[in-house]
């Protein structure tokens, strides 16, 4: 009930974004309920334009494109959410520790962040991905581990601004351990910042994954993500443009939703 009330108060764009995301997530979760098999090839039926029996048409191997989109969405969303979890966890931990303790530790960690940020992250991820065995787990890990730096900077600055507050000084004085103070008080205060960063991080991770998939370094065949479907679609750009339209539009819509929600949360934070 509380959630519904809060939802009702949101502006139209945020409502739309939330509903669309729910639909996309449901599609990804329930992909198996759709009768067509995303892996079953049927060459005689290849490259059919969208029709009643194949709402999004079929791909070059005659596989139902709608089924592949549903399963591809599952892959894309999984990568987005899990790699966000990794980068948020690492970023928040580094940010809180760096901001709370300050001094040499802070200086070292922040120089590390500067350093990692000066190497174009996409290239870093590309290299790591090319050398590890291709597969979902590695992609999630690599994207997560190479995109926490921005979050850690934001969390650090919030931590610095709150650690001098009286109640934290008091908690220190009555003998709480640093670990407890960080876990209970600091974390509660940086939570808002972390949520904003997390939502935008999902968007970035999905963009990153789709670019990797497009270069042929994403999910391995026959599993597809929206990005790797686009790699295939490029070969048929002139003749079967719809193959590029569906996965591309869905990436844009998904990323847009996460960005809209992230921005809305940022506004909420600022108030």
């Amino acid at each position: 009930m509380y959630l519904l009330k809060r939802f009702y108060k949101q502006p139209l764009s945020t409502k739309l974004a939330i509903v669309t995301l729910l639909i996309l997530v449901m599609g990804a979760v329930a992909a198996d309920l759709y009768p067509a098999d995303p892996y079953k090839t049927n060459i005689a039926n290849s490259l059919q334009s969208p029709s009643w029996s194949h709402p999004f048409g079929t791909d070059d191997l005659g596989r139902d494109y709608f089924a592949r989109i549903l399963h591809g969405g599952r892959a894309t969303l999984t990568v987005g959410l899990l790699s966000m979890a990794i980068s948020t966890l690492v970023g928040t931990t580094v940010g809180v520790i760096s901001g709370y303790f300050g001094g040499t530790l802070d200086a070292i960690l922040m120089r590390l962040v500067d350093l990692l940020m000066s190497i174009p992250s996409f290239f870093l991820i590309l290299i790591a991905n090319a050398y590890l065995k291709p597969g979902m787990q590695n992609i999630i890990l690599i994207i997560g581990l190479f995109s926490w730096m921005g979050i850690s900077r934001m969390v650090r600055s919030v931590t610095i601004s709150i650690k001098e507050r009286e109640y934290i000084q008091y908690a220190k004085m009555i003998g709480n351990s640093s670990k407890n103070i960080m876990l209970i008080h600091v974390l509660r205060n940086v939570a808002g910042t972390v949520w904003v960063a997390a939502s935008i991080q999902v968007a970035n991770a999905i963009l990153m994954e789709s670019a990797l998939g497009y270069l042929g370094l994403g999910a391995t065949q026959p599993t597809a993500s929206w990005g790797s479907m686009l790699k295939k679609a490029q070969e048929y750009l002139g003749s079967h443009f719809y193959l590029a339209v569906f996965p591309g539009m869905l990436i844009v819509i998904t990323v847009l939703c996460f960005n809209v929600i992230g921005n809305r949360m940022k506004e909420g934070e600022a108030q």
Binding site: S210, L230, L237, A244, I251, V255
Partner: peptide
């Protein structure tokens, strides 16, 4: 929308 479009797809 601009920050949500994958560059390579826009290119396509």
């Amino acid at each position: 929308i601009a920050i949500s479009i994958p560059g390579f797809w826009l290119a396509m």
